[in-house]
Design a protein around this nucleic acid. Structure first.
Lengths: 118, 118
DNA sequence: TCATTTTGTTTCGCGGCCGAAACGGCGCAG
DNA sequence: CTGCGCCGTTTCGGCCGCGAAACAAAATGA
């Protein structure tokens, strides 16, 4: 997985452009970082943990979870062991969104392959 | 330049995370797309052209240029030939920003190389 | 029991971005 | 010269995210 600076920039541009053109939920860069942390890092995920990981305040995480929760990308659940904690959980829709993002990146990194997937 | 879906997502996550942690100007995804279009597509660039390319309204471009212009990433100049047009020009600072983004992507795509570049 | 700490949420004031529409400057055809 | 169309900007009302601080609920320890 080697690439030139020009290739890297073109990849970033193409993906950003596709995401702007698409009419899906337009998440900020922070929200993207939060969402991918949830889906890539091993659980459990808490508000406090995510805030520390991104070096942002807790309300930022709460608001992002509100927005993405309304989109159905994540879910919140009280921790039964310590009811102060909130466990952030993945959803089918969120996993689908992440998969589509991965597909988009791969598509833009390997342009003009023959058989376009459905 | 081949990668697995997991690698693609990790790359996107790491770059987004680095950009969130960094204290540089935090641009929206639209602004990133506009900036990279300016720096990757051949000039000249006009408000109308960028609006059509991103399929957004013209005020979106004007506002993005206001913001990025205040950051010194782009400049506007009247077209002397047709004074209705505005030519968007690149700046040294903008080129530097784009280069740093490319470096970041490359760094995150080739993790843990031995000699870290200065 | 009760004060203290921890966790996540909410409130507050502020600023930025949004789309639609109105606006002013400019070119062009007649 | 004059009316019409194009280009970019500005205005309008509204929505969303921000950080700091106040807040409610739950656990902890004496």
């Amino acid at each position: 997985m080697a690439m030139t600076p020009a290739q890297a920039l073109k990849l970033w541009h193409d993906v950003a452009l596709s995401r702007v053109l698409a009419d899906g939920p337009d998440l900020s860069e922070r929200q993207i970082a939060i969402l991918l942390s949830i889906y890539l890092d091993p659980p459990p995920h808490t508000v406090r943990g995510l805030a520390a990981r991104l070096n942002v305040t807790k309300p930022v995480i709460t608001r992002a979870l509100d927005t993405m929760g309304a989109e159905g990308l994540v879910t919140r659940k009280r921790d039964p062991a310590d009811r102060r904690n909130v466990i952030i959980q993945r959803t089918v829709k969120g996993a689908l969104f992440v998969d589509e993002l991965a597909d988009l990146i791969l598509e833009k990194s390997a342009p003009a392959r023959a058989g376009a997937p459905s």
